[in-house]
Design a protein around this nucleic acid. Structure first.
Lengths: 142, 142
DNA sequence: AGCGAAATCATCCTTTCGGCTGATGCGCGT
DNA sequence: ACGCGCATCAGCCGAAAGGATGATTTCGCT
């Protein structure tokens, strides 16, 4: 989150600087102001869309039909797995890498690694694939 | 979606019109260009965020039935996964490391790695966790 | 207001994985 | 006999994952 804001700020600053430069170097005054504004509008619209998507929490997905899968929340609680850790566990099971997870949850890979380590410890696993297998077995993921 | 685009277009046009108006009426040239640009950037960033969220909302996915599991041998054959490779895939899904698999199948880790690589390629995955997810989705493992 | 649990991030180090290349042996079918 | 698919093994390299530890921030609850 912080990172995105920073990146956004930098991009904004860079763009303004660039515009300033262009203005002085190439007599931008000759370009109609509307065009100028239009370019900025388009660029920032794109940035806005990007930022908006980035900032939005991953919509969970969920589906369920048929399968009589029912999460054993009891087990989750008993193992002491926190909410965030559980999210990470789900993404692991979805086949994402730490980097992928970090991007999706909008945190650093360090954080993801910490969560992963905690999950592994709590599930008594030493590999993520093992964690998936155990979690499935314990009925805490489909 | 269509409506969103229309609204967006109208908003953009209205804003540009407004700016033009302001420009002529109140000598906007006196206002520093940077400030001008900044305002536009902020406004369009917000619009971008709003539009982005609006445009990408509904993303519902599938499916799945989970009754008694039934392997889709068709899929396995279609993917060209050999017998041995399939064995390895099952052990991967069971959470074993390459070393574990090698021990269990009485072959070297080199062999296991080769099989794993082939499986990954055939499932179009780049991590074993991804392979597990895809295999599950394709109903070739439970 | 303050305590404790979560969540976040970082660094260092080791192990495991994955990609690539290349090689050998075996059975099967034309 | 020859080609072909499959299974087997090896070595190298870089990337990803895992373990250990410490620090800071945020947040819920009392």
């Amino acid at each position: 989150m912080r990172r995105t804001i920073i990146i956004y700020g930098i991009a904004m600053a860079a763009l303004l600087g660039l515009l300033k430069l262009v203005e002085y170097k190439y007599f931008v005054r000759d370009i109609p102001l509307e065009f100028y504004i239009g370019v900025v509008a388009v660029i920032f619209t794109c940035l806005g869309i990007w930022a908006g998507l980035r900032l939005t929490r991953p919509r969970v997905i969920e589906v369920e039909v048929s399968g009589p899968f029912e999460r054993d929340d009891q087990a989750v609680k008993k193992l002491g797995i926190s909410k965030r850790e559980f999210e990470v566990l789900e993404l692991i099971a979805a086949g994402l890498s730490n980097q992928n997870i970090a991007d999706r949850l909008f945190v650093s890979t360090s954080t993801v690694k910490t969560h992963v380590s905690n999950v592994l410890a709590k599930l008594d696993a030493s590999r993520r694939t093992e964690a998936i297998a155990r979690a499935k077995q314990l009925r805490i993921i489909p």
